[in-house]
């Protein structure tokens, strides 16, 4: 397997989880709700997917446990972005931004087939 490079594009759930944790530490269910809100209900993370992402992000050192609370005898673990996680998210955001700008400029210079013949 190839080592995960810093420039490799991020999968969408990973990107959304990091974005959800960017401003403030959140617990698992809050991340699911936040992601649904951010994407206008388009992405609703399932528990399995969420924890696969959280586990991988933790072992890569992009996020860490902020604190644990027990609410109504249920465990709530809050996660926060690490310095490395912040850098990765910033790099990914810049990459997406560059791509979007590029696509925008290409769309502007696009000629319709009619124009090419005139």
């Amino acid at each position: 397997m190839l080592p995960r490079m810093t420039e490799a594009p991020m999968r969408e759930p990973t990107f959304l989880v990091l974005t959800a944790l960017a401003a403030t530490p959140q617990h698992g269910y809050a991340v699911i709700e936040d992601v649904a809100r951010m994407t206008d209900g388009r992405v609703r993370l399932r528990a399995g997917t969420l924890y696969a992402a959280l586990d991988r992000l933790r072992s890569d050192g992009l996020i860490e446990v902020d604190r644990e609370e027990v609410v109504q005898s249920r465990l709530r673990r809050y996660y926060r972005l690490t310095g490395v996680g912040e850098q990765r998210l910033a790099a990914e955001t810049a990459r997406l931004h560059r791509q979007a700008t590029l696509a925008e400029s290409r769309l502007r210079t696009r000629r319709t087939p009619g124009e090419a013949f005139s």
Partner: peptide, 17 residues
């Protein structure tokens, strides 16, 4: 290993949902 780390938390998330 995964269960001991996340099972309680995941059950909480599943029940919240």
């Amino acid at each position: 290993r995964h269960r001991s780390a996340y099972a309680d938390e995941m059950v909480a998330v599943l029940m919240d949902g």
